[in-house]
Design a protein around this nucleic acid. Structure first.
Length: 350
DNA sequence: GGTAGACCTGGACGC
DNA sequence: GCGTCCAGGTCTACC
């Protein structure tokens, strides 16, 4: 690990009063994908950002400075500011850009009132405080990561993202839309192991690079979730699952990205019977009463299952535990039909 | 609108 | 070590 002493520039970022970095960053699988590197011993997140088209290595921690030894959870005061330490000095514009990216990645704009609203809807997660979901510093990275997670086992997604950073990105950063748009199809397939996704990834990068994806419109509260979903599903390589996943990565939690993981969860944990299609419908109906919190309720129920098998997510290592947390990797480890206490439902009784 | 088959890769498995 | 099979979501052609 790089020590903070080698960082000439540090930023302090205030967070919501209930915020805990180890809990709220390690809340979605993307925290395990390059260029993100979570250190489970020092409870800090290392990643190379792209600021004003320059790769800048950064380290994020909460509370006291991380040392080489293990940091005890109790030493981190809830809601204490984050420190972002960088390996090079930044311009004012780069500092603002970095702050925006960290806010998006860690969902820092979701204050305790948003969290409380979710916990009123699903009190099962009040004690742990789970509510915020990790995502990427940019929508472009989230879209590309989602495509690399489709029709593939999780370890392959890890490989694709690692190679995209090594081969296409500069200085270990995630590729920019410009870099990916000008990459040859054959390079992507041969060196990044993306398979048939090669052309689709380049087409998506071109759409972002030529400003044909209006992020402001997609995040505008006046735009409905269904309108966003309809737009996303028209993009190359984006089907119903990917569109719903990007929807949640846009901070819209009303829909479920239903995949084989959902079917396994429905079958083994919720006890649903029937074909995969029938189980997907039942899972969808099961969580629908959560309305705008549907995905959070679904996701944290699954996340708790993963943690029951693999330990708390902030103890996962990218190279070991982080490769095996999905249900497909756990399927031979005695998935019982043990049914969790059902969530208290609010809203519609449909 | 629903469905079958192709698309790739890496891991599991059998020999 | 090698060959075969399988899992995974999207896309296209077809009914």
């Amino acid at each position: 690990m790089t020590t903070p002493a080698h960082h000439p520039e540090t930023l302090s970022i205030p967070v919501p009063r209930d915020y805990l970095l180890h809990r709220d960053a390690c809340s979605y699988g993307y925290f395990l994908l390059a260029p993100n590197h979570w250190n489970p011993h020092t409870l800090s997140l290392h990643r190379t950002f792209t600021l004003d088209n320059q790769p800048v290595k950064g380290l994020i921690w909460q509370g006291p400075r991380p040392a080489f030894s293990t940091v005890p959870i109790r030493s981190i005061p809830r809601g204490s500011s984050l420190t972002v330490a960088l390996e090079s000095t930044l311009s004012d514009a780069q500092r603002r850009e970095l702050s925006d990216q960290v806010h998006r990645m860690l969902n820092l704009h979701e204050d305790h009132t948003v969290v409380r609203s979710f916990h009123r809807a699903d009190p099962r997660f009040k004690a742990s405080g789970r509510a915020r979901l990790f995502r990427s510093p940019t929508l472009f990275e989230d879209v590309i990561k989602t495509v690399t997670s489709c029709n593939v086992a999780w370890p392959s997604t890890i490989i694709m993202n690692k190679r995209l950073c090594e081969v296409v990105g500069e200085g270990g950063a995630f590729p920019t839309s410009a870099q990916l748009a000008r990459t040859r199809v054959a390079t992507l397939r041969a060196r990044c192991s993306v398979g048939y996704r090669d052309q689709r990834l380049i087409d998506l990068a071109k759409l972002f690079y030529t400003n044909q994806i209006d992020e402001a419109h997609l995040t505008n509260p006046k735009t409905t979730d269904d309108e966003v979903l309809d737009f996303l599903i028209e993009l190359p390589g984006i089907g119903p699952y990917a569109a719903a996943n990007i929807l949640q990565l846009l901070g819209r939690y009303s829909h479920l990205p239903l995949d084989t993981e959902s079917v396994r969860h429905g079958r083994t944990i919720l006890g649903f019977k029937g074909s995969s299609a029938q189980i997907m419908k039942k899972v969808k109906a099961h969580f629908a009463p959560m309305r705008q919190h549907t995905f959070r309720s679904y996701w944290f129920e699954m996340w708790e299952f993963y943690e029951a098998k693999r330990g708390k997510s902030w103890t996962w290592d990218r190279e070991t535990t982080g490769k095996t947390f999905t249900a497909s990797a756990l399927k031979d480890e005695g998935l019982g039909p043990k049914k969790p206490k059902p969530a208290k439902r609010r809203g519609s009784s449909n």
